[in-house]
Design a protein around this nucleic acid. Structure first.
Lengths: 124, 124
DNA sequence: ACCGGTCTTTCACCGGGCGTTCACGACCGG
DNA sequence: CCGGTCGTGAACGCCCGGTGAAAGACCGGT
């Protein structure tokens, strides 16, 4: 029953998604997303922290069956990444799990070392 | 039907393995494992505390018969060790039993062992 | 109907991740 | 000293996913 059900707003660390309004706020600023982009982002955000297969994402955001060789999900993930990166530089929201799918989770950009320490400027 | 079954997660002291999602959480942080790596880790974790032969591990994770001289299991054990050590420094999950196979069991590494830090100063 | 713009789909290219295999060395028991 | 076992690094082909862009669908304004 978990189709692209709209209604309540989704909130993460830096994002607020209001599917029913077609509105996404990144750090207060509004993002201009198309219908598909919003559906896909909503589907991903509602499964935050979990790996979602392309087939499931397609079913959720396109309301159909993903055909073999269809790259639509990849293309829209790309567009979402571009817009989200532009809205929240230094943060990564959509992570790729090769062979499985994508995972939505707001994380600071540190792709090489997933668990690196935050030393920053603590050194005096 | 699947909904409840998807929570088929393996949990140990510091690891949470979700085979159906292709996701491994180490202390809350997500690990990026490949399909083979995850299958092998799952096979090992399901036999936690017991020594599993290479033949059995290969049968479980590769769905085939281990040929003579095939080092695949060793190579992937190595890769798992690297990633797990990076995610949980100071802990050893996969133990070698020479002549028999491998055993999965979360244990702290010897205290006398001094760790080399690999920060490499990726200053932003 | 025409037109211009946006959105969606599809295609093609390519770089990188992944799986496999090999080679070398350390270690150990016989 | 020799053979077996395992650790470890690396080469290599292949496939998956990243990416840019063209082509087509859709839509509102005029």
């Amino acid at each position: 029953m978990e189709t692209a059900r709209q209604g309540d707003a989704l909130r993460t660390a830096q994002l607020e998604i209001r599917p029913d309004e077609g509105l996404v706020l990144a750090d207060g600023r509004a993002l201009a997303l198309s219908v598909r982009e919003l559906h896909l982002l909503t589907a991903l955000a509602r499964r935050e922290g979990r790996v979602v297969s392309r087939a499931e994402l397609y079913a959720l955001a396109w309301q159909g069956v993903l055909r073999n060789g269809d790259r639509s999900v990849d293309v829209y993930v790309r567009r979402l990444r571009v817009k989200l990166e532009r809205a929240q530089p230094g943060w990564c929201f959509i992570h790729t799990h090769v062979g499985f799918g994508y995972r939505f989770a707001p994380e600071p950009t540190a792709p090489a070392r997933s668990h690196d320490f935050h030393i920053t400027a603590t050194a005096r």
